[in-house]
Design a protein around this nucleic acid. Structure first.
Lengths: 228, 228
DNA sequence: CGACAAATGACATAGTCTGCCAGCTTATCT
DNA sequence: AGATAAGCTGGCAGACTATGTCATTTGTCG
């Protein structure tokens, strides 16, 4: 029996689908009752987790508490999210994943720095467009080192994907050894992610006082990419 | 009862002190019997962990196995290292921590990029000087996402410290708002860490084929720091 | 409605990590 | 050297995360 008072965060109307919450298109017209319920549960779990974590911190909040708040068994919670950290972090991951598509959609003629910066900026614009959604999530992440580590890890995976996309996009232009060109590519990608991270940190630190894309532009001025 | 055959990795003679293993000066002339024993146990735990992980992977290797191999109780293992991941990762942390001192030792007149790059290069030179030591560790880290995440976290903490050192080093020169200057500082620090990570990855990927400082120099050419 | 598939909950289990206490070893002082 | 204090170790109990399994419930479709 749980006596936790459920305080709605009102991030979004709960009758809205999960896909809608992220502002992501999911090829769906009408979700079946089943899928709608799943979407709703998934989002409720996020809400409960954010609420509890905001009050108690991440490590002090147990799986049981989160599950109880949504009246779901802990076993079920772990079927929705592979780990406790993922309850929070997977949303950021979904948000950032648009970087992949964005990058692939850039015109082929564009230089690597142009494409990278443009795609990253677009992603952060979408990030910003979700209102306080990601701001709340980022704040929750910032309260725990282990969650922050997990987010970093996901961004690392994303960085590899981005690097791979660039490699394919630019094949045939390799004028140096493979090792050297991938080294430099990794530096470029890593630098863009450094800009992204710094922007987000500043954004969170000032409670979203300034638009994220603006911060990104400002941050991007701090470095210049040297092309081979 | 454990039947694990103890295979020496022969990274270092075991009669050498832990401090020596890292090539770090620790204000010590003669370690007491107690401390010497602790150093030896700590290093044996690393050896056992590296050995087991190389064969079975990180998650498949339990605390019990590692502890058994050194004939120590699991409880004691966790007194030496706060978590299982730290058995491996804490060494990298100690190795990287020289970046702090190195940065503080840079001449005050130096520009931020100069100081950052020089300190980072020195750190990697020390890294390289330890021979295969860090190479083995990095390889073990690369086999598991959770360990990699933990390493990221430690580097994140280090990055904050570095940023703080820079902030203090440059106070009085602030000509923009505090928020803006810390944003740009974070980008600079993050970029240096991107260079470091890319170098290490390339180093590990080629099994240490080329000297780490050389890779660093090459990687550093890929970006240029814009001051103020 | 009835058959089928999916989702859920209720165990059981492994493994990580912490607190606690008793027993032993090392260091220190007389 | 001997006694006392301090530190180290091992074993035990307990909380929590995470995974596998199986019976039950719920949604879907003919």
């Amino acid at each position: 029996m749980s006596f936790v008072v459920k305080r709605r965060l009102a991030l979004l109307p709960t009758d809205r689908s999960l896909s809608g919450a992220l502002g992501l298109a999911r090829g769906v017209d009408v979700l079946g009752l089943r899928e709608a319920k799943k979407d709703r549960t998934r989002f409720q779990l996020l809400e409960a987790a954010l609420d509890l974590i905001a009050r108690q911190g991440f490590e002090q909040t147990t799986l049981n508490e989160i599950a109880d708040a949504v009246q779901v068994s802990p076993r079920t919670l772990l079927r929705y999210f592979p780990t406790k950290e993922d309850v929070i972090v997977s949303w950021v991951d979904e948000g950032m994943a648009v970087l992949r598509e964005g990058l692939e959609a850039r015109p082929p003629g564009e230089s690597r720095p142009e494409a990278l910066l443009a795609a990253a900026r677009d992603m952060l614009a979408a990030y910003q467009a979700r209102g306080g959604f990601f701001l709340v999530i980022e704040r929750a992440i910032a309260t725990s080192d282990t969650v922050a580590a997990r987010k970093q890890q996901m961004m690392e995976v994303l960085a590899r994907d981005v690097s791979a996309i660039l490699a394919e996009r630019e094949d045939g232009q390799a004028q140096h050894g493979e090792a050297r060109s991938s080294l430099i590519r990794d530096v470029h990608v890593g630098t863009v992610f450094a800009i992204i991270r710094a922007s987000i940190r500043s954004w969170v630190g000032t409670n979203g006082g300034r638009p994220l894309p603006d911060l990104f532009d400002e941050a991007a001025c701090a470095v210049r990419f040297v092309e081979t």
